[in-house]
Design a binder for these strands. Sequence first.
DNA 1: ATTATAATTTAGGCGCACCTAATCAGCGAG
DNA 2: CTCGCTGATTAGGTGCGCCTAAATTATAAT
Lengths: 233, 233
Amino acid sequence: MVRAERRPDLTRSSEDYLKAIFELEALGGLAQTTAIADALAVAPPSVSGMLKRLSASGLLAHVPYRGVQLTASGRRAALRMLRRHRILETYLVSKLGYDWDSVHPEAERLEHAVSDELVERMAMALGNPRFDPHGAPIPSPGGELEEVELVALSEVPAGETAELRRLSDRDPELLRYVASLGLRVGVRFEVLLRQPFRGPVTIRLLGPPIKEQVIGHELAGGLWCEIIPKEAG
Amino acid sequence: MVRAERRPDLTRSSEDYLKAIFELEALGGLAQTTAIADALAVAPPSVSGMLKRLSASGLLAHVPYRGVQLTASGRRAALRMLRRHRILETYLVSKLGYDWDSVHPEAERLEHAVSDELVERMAMALGNPRFDPHGAPIPSPGGELEEVELVALSEVPAGETAELRRLSDRDPELLRYVASLGLRVGVRFEVLLRQPFRGPVTIRLLGPPIKEQVIGHELAGGLWCEIIPKEAG
DNA sequence: ATTATAATTTAGGCGCACCTAATCAGCGAG
DNA sequence: CTCGCTGATTAGGTGCGCCTAAATTATAAT
């Protein structure tokens, strides 16, 4: 039985669209034209045109004026890009000394150019990591994506101990600022105070060094954490 | 004094053309339309069109019906691509276990996607190598290219000792075959016999292991060597 | 139910990079 | 000196991926 998976080689742009649509779907069912346009910084009519091409290639289902949803083959392509992007970011950080705030654009360009073989060689050299430097899960070569249940720091009740597990890789300034607070993926802290009315959150890093930091509500909303259960004493 | 070097960001295609033209110029003064078309596997009219664009951007001087020559800025861009390509090949071979016969296409795609920063980080990780795995000299970041005077194996007189210093990276089959003979860049051997009328060359590798090999004239013409002066005894 | 507004699509255009077919320039041979 | 060949260019066409402006559809508000 031949796997006839005709793959007419996606263009760079198509790859970008599929990845963006995949990420938008994760937020809310259908991906809408405007949302895609915003994500890719193009005008809405450009999106309409591209959706036409992509749906003609069977990569997505397009309900005009409604939105768009990836087909199995579209999702596979998107996950392939996601794997590439995240392996690349991890490789650049661990093997070439990039900072976590500067890898994103580099990976964004390289993900269209690397071969599957190179990606797998990098993954191997890294020991097949499961998360990238920002805590995003890396899809398996076969396209399985392990999604972890996390809670935003802004929602962690005072008194709990938590570990930073994930944040967006998009904003370098934000990443630099977060790092300057002593926060990195894997760092644990205790939530001392969570002020009401979208107020700031005060945490104490479980050092070294042990430091207190105050974090605005909006920023805390983008810091995804795992709550560490208290020791049964 | 501001270096106003307006760089309108070359397209991938432009980069390929400039690199090809640079290499053709090295062979014989002017690069001709057909030669460029052959090198890039496109039709001659496509080349005419691109030459028009490139000469409008001041990257080359085009004498219609005659040929084409890079300007200083075109040469700079070409050398930049050459550096990228060769650093990439070296990196892939030394850090990611690629074979010397399979790196070329990977580098060919990546050279358009990597940033200057990434190239320099790779170069640094490699200890700023001066030659790539096929012995091609790597241009400096500033664009200086050190050309070494070499002689084809087919022209090395019998009795001389020589070292393989360079060969083309284009043909994977050839590279695999050459490797199977025990030849690599840096390997030394003695020329035992050079048969006339474009006949084969017989060499003895200065082991280990010490082996004799017979190499056809045409292949020998593509193996560039340095002749090692005899010890003054 | 109608109307205003916001989202989306169609219409029409542009530049790049390719193609084939047809034309034109340069050059050596007779 | 002209013919004919080779090589280069122009002419004209295609698809991609973007744009703006105009039309269309969906939806929320009156």
